[in-house]
Design a protein around this nucleic acid. Structure first.
Length: 433
RNA sequence: GUGACUGUAGCUCAGCUGGUAGAGCCCCGGACUGUGACUCCGGUUGUCGCGGGUUCGAACCCCGUCAGUCACCCCA
């Protein structure tokens, strides 16, 4: 015996029950995207490494330590399993000239990969839905993508458990000016900084603001504010977005410490967060990324979008017991085939029932076995009705009757002519064929 | 990458501060009754995560290692 094989750390199998729930969530989410006129796009799981390095930023955590990067064994090309999909969608949009004939609204779904230590709500292979809207200045499009999120939570019953946080992080130039001022402030107080803050002070000073150390937060209370470095134009955009959200009845809270982990964001950024998931509370995050297209070699194109993690949504649905009954696949009818001489007839009978009742789940018994054991399988399947085709034990003749049996406590059964079995099944299940 | 906790049957878990493997549920085969059954018999429930060490003797104590979970960091 060889040693047991197992899935890669942080990469999960979805067993049937969970996979069915995912299918339901996927259907609801893609339906909402479709309602808003967003069109699907599918890009490869692997991109050349520069796609992500140029888009996400050299000094981000994702690029520095979380990417699954490798060299193609055949030609040495530097490749990376996508850690997020905005960069790849932008690459594809540029490559196929999608941005030269007006606005584009796109959505995607698929697996992403980050080499992190797994914990609740965080996995090395995880799955994101996302939307990207190109060529619109906003803030109306900003409000639209936020509204899409709000509608999704409503559709999934999660609205009471998710709140919207927004922030204005200004332009890249604004942030550079601010980072300079912030670094100067930190240098002045370097003796009071913890190790973490000192390490980040020069590489990514704005990350220091995220510190959960109370002493750091106390010190940062007197630090310069990003708001003071943001242009008036950006402030006006931000104010207009808030007005649109209010008009749409979407509640939000401003979080001045909300700084997204990818360099390409600018101006309005947002996160949908929850208390239900432990430490990983962000269910959906996004914002504007007006400079990204140009940065990746396209003509300057405004853009906004978000990404949401389906694992976290499903975890919420599970922990809040909000899984719709319709998520689980049901078996309605189990066809017993007793006797080897009626196997062909059994297959045909099950087939004709499926044709007559296309919405029902119908299992035809396979593998033989005695009446008792087949009936036991029928009960175990969860079916409501057993359709029993039984070969005559004495004559071995093909039967011209079929027995129907309710698989409930009543055990009510009835024998019917094989030609009228469809009508009879409809009666038993109170539906018409 | 760092830390804490947890690894005993397919599942849920016992195992009294070292003395020879346990319960419940499930699963399989057979007998019986034609209709999930009941009852009876029988079966697998196991390298006690893995490897060392201490000991006459380790599921239990010590060291190492692996895995899982949660948290830090960061994010979806």
């Amino acid at each position: 015996m060889s040693s047991k094989l197992s899935a890669v750390k942080g990469m999960n199998d979805l067993l049937p029950e969970q996979a069915e729930l995912w299918e339901l969530v996927e259907a609801k989410v893609s339906e909402v995207f479709r309602q808003y006129g967003y069109r699907p796009i599918r890009t490869p799981i692997v991109e050349t490494t520069p796609v992500f390095v140029r888009a996400i930023g050299e000094v981000t955590d994702i690029v520095e330590k979380e990417m699954y990067s490798f060299n193609d064994a055949l030609n040495g090309e530097a490749l990376t399993l996508r850690p997020e999909n905005t960069a790849a969608v932008v690459r594809a949009a540029i490559e196929h000239n999608l941005l030269y004939d007006g606005p584009r609204r796109l959505w995607y779904f698929g697996p992403m990969f980050r080499h992190e230590r797994p914990q609740k709500g965080r996995y090395r292979q995880f799955h994101q839905f996302g939307v990207e809207a190109f060529g619109m200045a906003g803030p109306d499009i900003d409000a639209e993508v936020i509204q899409i999120g709000a509608l999704l939570w409503q559709e999934l019953g999660l609205t009471p458990f998710i709140t919207l946080q927004i922030n204005n992080i200004g332009s890249a130039a604004d942030r550079q000016g601010y980072a300079k001022a912030l670094t100067a402030f930190l240098e002045q107080h370097v003796d009071q900084l913890d190790t973490d803050a000192r390490n980040r002070m020069h590489s990514n000073p704005m990350r220091v603001l995220d510190s959960k150390n109370p002493e750091m937060q106390a010190l940062l209370a007197s630090a310069p504010l990003l708001t003071d470095f943001v242009s008036d134009e950006s402030k006006a955009h931000y104010a207009a977005l808030q007005a649109l959200l209010a008009a749409a009845g979407i509640a939000f809270e401003e979080n001045p410490r909300l700084v997204r982990g990818l360099d390409y964001y600018n101006n309005c950024v947002f996160e949908w967060v929850t208390q239900e998931l432990g430490a990983q509370g962000t269910v959906c995050g996004g914002g504007r990324y007006d400079g990204l297209v140009e940065q990746l070699g396209g003509k300057p194109t405004l853009a906004a979008g978000f990404a949401m993690g389906i694992e976290r949504l499903v975890l919420m649905l599970e922990s809040l017991s909000l899984i719709p009954a319709s998520a689980l696949q049901v078996v309605d009818i189990y066809v017993l085939v007793v006797g080897e001489g009626v196997v062909a007839e059994g297959l045909a009978l099950a087939r004709s029932l499926r044709t007559a009742f296309p919405d029902l789940g119908i299992i035809g018994h396979c593998g033989g076995g005695k009446y008792n054991s087949q009936l036991k399988r029928a009960y175990a399947s969860g079916a409501r009705l057993a359709v029993i085709l039984e070969q005559d034990a004495d004559t071995s003749a093909t039967p011209n009757t079929v027995k129907l049996r309710r698989l409930d406590d009543s055990g009510q059964s009835e024998t019917t002519d094989i030609d009228s079995v469809v009508a009879k099944v409809g009666e038993f299940l109170s539906i018409s064929a």
